[in-house]
């Protein structure tokens, strides 16, 4: 589907915040789903980028980091230009509105983006933990603050917020209050550690995985991960999986 880029911001040196007009996709989009974007330039394949927000029922927002040729070309698009987007694709997070106030969202680095839409969709405002490398990498604090009942930020070097890992904050949160469900997206080691804590304490953990992807619709079977002893497609069976079943 061809969508018009209506808003473009650059919150960090290598990070771009795009909003596209696309009522059909916006209507269907669920938190945790992704868009498969034709970036232009020499990039042959589409790039999967998670949906960060849906606004006014017709706009889709996605944020991405420039990492290679594809995202570099995408970042060069100008407001008013069109972008070829397939989506929304994949299964999003399973929501449990009844427990939303005790839900905990944990994001790391550029994995925080899909959690904003999730925080808004959960119904009751959840608790949110965000982890970053350092103060310079911290972003979207105001938006997450507005969408959560409590926002905790950790940095690896202690230059902002809590000095330590998101898992330290998770343990604190479990000691001081109830955690009904954990939703997480971020670096693999972080998600693996959270999935282990969840297993230990019998808390369901939903993880959003990433893998090098082809078609995005489940046919080419390239973006597989091991789940419960079998290969699952990140694009079609995921990208959200039960953390207890993923073999990281």
């Amino acid at each position: 589907m061809i969508c018009e880029l209506v808003k473009k911001e650059q919150p960090k040196e290598h990070i771009y915040d795009f909003t596209v007009l696309c009522p059909e996709m916006a209507e269907q989009a669920k938190a945790g789903q992704f868009l498969h974007i034709l970036c232009g330039g020499d990039a042959y394949l589409r790039r999967p980028i998670s949906i960060c927000d849906v606004t006014e029922g017709k706009y889709l927002r996605f944020i991405f980091e420039v990492r290679g040729e594809g995202t570099k070309s995408l970042a060069e698009k100008k407001v008013g230009e069109s972008i070829d987007i397939l989506g929304p694709l994949g299964n999003g997070f399973s929501l449990h509105p009844e427990d939303a106030e005790d839900a905990l969202l944990i994001g790391g680095g550029i994995g925080i983006f899909p959690l904003l839409n999730l925080a808004k969709e959960l119904g009751n405002k959840p608790n949110v933990i965000l982890g970053f490398r350092n103060k310079d990498a911290v972003m979207m604090e105001d938006e997450f603050s507005a969408a959560s009942s409590k926002l905790m930020i950790a940095t690896d070097d202690g230059s902002y917020g809590f000095h330590g890992l998101v898992t330290d904050l998770l343990k604190q949160q479990m000691e001081t209050g109830r955690v009904s469900h954990i939703y997480t997206c971020g670096p693999t080691p972080m998600m693996r550690a959270i999935a282990e804590i969840g297993k230990e304490h019998n808390i369901p953990v939903q993880v959003s995985l990433e893998e090098r992807m082809g078609c995005g619709v489940g046919a080419c079977v390239t973006c597989t991960c091991m789940v419960n002893g079998g290969r699952k497609r990140v694009c079609k069976d995921g990208p959200v999986f039960d953390g207890a079943e993923v073999e990281f």
Partner: peptide
């Protein structure tokens, strides 16, 4: 079962 991931790599005008 096939091979482990990554199973796809982008190359000039192809994969």
């Amino acid at each position: 079962l096939g091979n482990p991931s990554p199973r796809i790599a982008e190359t000039p005008k192809g994969i």
